[in-house]
Amino acid sequence: MIEVKNLHKSFGDAHILKGINTAFEKGKTNLIIGQSGSGKTVFLKCLLGLFNYEQGSIAYDGKIFSKLSEDEKRDIRAQIGMVFQGSALFDSMTIEENVMFPLKMFTKQSKSEMQDRVDFVLKRVNLADAHKKMPSEASGGMQKRVAIARAIVNKPKYLFCDEPNSGLDPKTSIVIDDLIKEITEEYQITTVINSHDMNSVMQIGEKIVFLKNGYKEWEGSRYDIFKTDNKAVTDFVYSSELFKKVRQMYLEERG
């Protein structure tokens, strides 16, 4: 579980995050949504420890990150898996080497143990035949699946995904969403996804945090989002005619 209390972050005079309070639960897919410039990426980077913040706290299973020693921070980071927007695969390594990288860095496993684990996770993301390919030879969807495989290979407790569906076609997006949800439930990971994609919100959003202008405007589940009368949320989520109709049908069904 990740708990965020009164988080403030500024860049110079620009106050980006303004007192965020929320909690991301274990075994659930948590989504951070909001318009471009609402502070989603900054929030995610604060959660990852890539940005320092001025005020507030972030606790990983009760341990406040900013109060930990460097060694303890490193231990927490070793338990984090991250899927970057552009996949961020190491382009000088093959797909297999990319996935094996966290194991090489953080475990004392033998070569055969590492190979078994890599084979297992690549099979888990349906890439059993892609071991020797270079990232540049893989499609966008394949690269995302490799990034997920690399993120989960060391059995992380926390999984972060920055817009995992960006640049993907709708069908591949659904495959990636399903994969993240399955992995989250299977390994009981705390998953936090930064997304713009309303399909993802409706499909896998067990907890949704909506940011607006650096404030947490709303939070709830994908079912709550149909019922909410928060204007900022409805304006954002139901900006397309299709989703407006979906909402109308949902509300009519439930009287």
């Binding site: 890539l50 921070k73 490193r74 980071r77 970057f84 695969l89 382009d91």
Partner: peptide
């Protein structure tokens, strides 16, 4: 620089490297 632009350096940092 390419590693910076494509977030590969961020990926290393997130892993605690």
């Amino acid at each position: 620089g390419t590693m910076r632009v494509t977030e590969q350096i961020d990926a290393l940092e997130v892993m605690g490297i």
